[in-house]
Design a protein around this nucleic acid. Structure first.
Lengths: 252, 252
DNA sequence: GATAACATGTACATTACCGTACACGAATAG
DNA sequence: CTATTCGTGTACGGTAATGTACATGTTATC
C-alpha cells in the first residue's frame, strides 16, 4: 500500500503496468471481496466503479425480456469489469455478476477513465484485454449456435477452472443451465454423463474437476481457441494456477 | 480532398471528429470500393489497413474448424473495420467480409493506431463504436442461442436494411444461411413465409424489404435493443437513410 | 428433530431444427 | 440456342433439444 511499491497481486492488467503508472493508480484502488451471485453491474445502471479481479470469476450476462439470461463472457484475474465505462459509456450494456466468489481491487470509474486517457501504458493494458473480451464474445456467439450442450458445458467448466486456484467450484445445475442458456434438466443429464465418465464430480452445489484432458476432448474447439488467446504469446503462465496438464498441443 | 476541409461523408466515426483532427487524418485516407464477398481481414493474418465504411455492410464472422461460419457482428457506415488493430493487436481474431457492396476510406493500420494514441477525439469516436460493437456481439451471442430462425432472420434483414440506402439488397438464401448459422433449406422455408406474409420479396439473389414494421414484429427484441444503442441518445438520425417508418415506440 | 427449501434424477410428449436428397426454373457461358 | 451452373422449393427420416412434471434425497431453518 505504500507509494512506489510494485504490484504483486494476480490481476494481469495491473501486473502489466510499469511501476510509475501503477503508483498513480494504486491510491485509488480499494480491495473488496466478491461474494457469490453479487451483482456488479446492472443493465442500464450507471457504472460507478470498475473492478480488477484478483480471484474468482465474473460473468457477463445478456438478459432477455422474458428474464432468460445467458452468459456471453467470463472475466477472471486476466481482466477487469467495466471496460465500457473506461471507454466512455456511462452505463453498462450487460449484466455482470459474480460467478465464483473471490476478491478484486475496486476503483472509481471516472478516475479509471482519466488514468486510461492519461497513460499510454494503462491504455495498452486495458485495450489488450478489451480485444480478448471481444474475441471471447464473438467465439461464444458462434459456439452458442453451433455446438452441443455437452461441448459447451465442458468448455464452460474448463474456462472457469482456468480462472480459479482450486479444482472445486460452487455451482449448481440450475445456475450452470442459465449460463449456457439451456434447461436445468438438460444440464443434469449432461453433468451426469460427465460424472459417469469420470471427468467431473459434483454434489449439491459443488463441482469438482477431475480430468482436464478428458474435458478438453469433450469440449469444442472454442475452448482451445479462447485459451490460446488468453495465454497469448506472452509469458503470463506464472500468473495462472499451477497445474500439471494444460492444453496439450495435439489438439485436433 | 484539400486540407482543412471538413468531412462531409457518411462515416459516423469520421463525422464525429473535430475539423482539426480530421485534417490530420484525411491525407492518409484512401477511398476504395468494397466488392461483394471481398475478404477484408482473414483470421490470424496481419491487419494492414483499417476501413471506415461509407456505404455497404461488412460482416464479422467466426469460422469453425469444420469451415462452418457464422456472423457475430455487422459493420456499416456507423463504424470501422479493424478496431483490434487500433487496439494494438497485429492480427485479426475474426474473418471480415463484404456483405453488401459499397465504399470505404482505407487507412494504414499503424497510422490509424498512432492517430488513436495521439488524439483524444479519435479515441473517443473509436471507443464509442467499439463499445457498440461489444454490445452487439454480446446480444448476438444470446440471440443465437435463444431465438428462432424466423426471429433471427427478420432481425438480420432489419439490421442490414438500417445500414444501406436501398430497400433492395443482393443476398441469396445460401449466404444468409451461413450468416445465421443454419441450413440453406431452413432459410428458404423461413424466407418463403416472410414473402407470403408480404414482409419481403426475393428473386434469385436479391431481397427486397417491403414491410419494416412487419419485420420488426417478427424479429426478436434483439433488433430493437441493438437499434436503440446504434442510434443512442445522439442526434445521428440525419446520417441514416431517410425512411418513413423507423422503430415505433410501441415495442413490447 | 421436524419442516421447509433446495439440488438433483428422470420421464415423456413435443418441437425446431438437422442432414440429405432431388427437382425445377432462372441466369449465365459457350 | 444449348449446356451448365446457380438459386430456390420441397420432402423425409432423424435428433437434440424443449417444456413440464413429479419424485427423491440433502441441506438449511427453527
Amino acid at each position: 500500500m505504500s507509494p512506489a511499491s510494485r504490484y504483486t497481486g494476480r490481476n494481469r492488467i495491473l501486473a502489466a503496468l510499469p511501476p510509475e503508472d501503477f503508483d498513480r493508480f494504486s491510491p485509488a484502488l480499494q480491495p473488496i471481496s466478491l461474494s457469490l451471485r453479487q451483482v456488479i453491474h446492472d443493465v442500464s445502471s450507471p457504472i460507478e466503479h470498475v473492478y480488477f479481479v484478483e480471484q474468482g470469476v465474473c460473468s457477463i450476462l445478456t438478459i432477455m425480456a422474458d428474464d432468460s439470461a445467458i452468459e456471453v463472457g467470463m472475466i477472471g484475474s486476466e481482466g477487469m469489469v467495466g471496460v465500457s465505462a473506461v471507454f466512455g459509456s456511462a452505463t453498462s450494456g450487460q449484466h455482470i455478476i459474480v460467478q465464483i466468489p473471490g476478491t478484486a481491487l475496486r476503483m472509481d470509474a471516472a478516475r479509471c477513465k482519466a488514468a486510461f486517457d492519461e497513460s499510454a501504458a494503462v491504455r495498452m493494458a486495458v485495450l489488450r484485454f478489451a480485444t480478448a473480451l471481444m474475441n471471447l464474445s464473438a467465439q461464444t456467439a458462434a459456439c452458442n449456435r453451433l455446438h452441443s450442450i455437452e461441448q459447451r458445458c465442458a468448455r464452460w467448466l474448463l474456462m472457469a477452472h482456468d480462472r480459479i486456484q482450486s479444482d472445486i467450484m460452487p455451482m449448481t445445475h440450475e445456475f450452470l443451465a442459465s449460463m449456457l442458456g439451456v434447461r436445468r434438466a438438460g444440464v443434469t443429464v449432461t453433468a451426469g454423463e460427465l460424472q459417469r465418465s469420470g471427468l467431473i464430480r459434483y454434489h449439491h452445489g459443488q463441482i469438482t474437476i477431475r480430468d482436464r484432458d478428458g474435458l478438453q476432448a469433450t469440449a469444442c474447439e472454442c475452448y482451445r481457441i479462447d485459451h490460446e488467446r488468453f495465454m497469448g504469446s506472452s509469458q503470463n503462465q506464472h500468473l495462472l494456477p499451477d497445474r500439471s496438464s494444460r492444453i496439450p498441443t495435439h489438439a485436433a
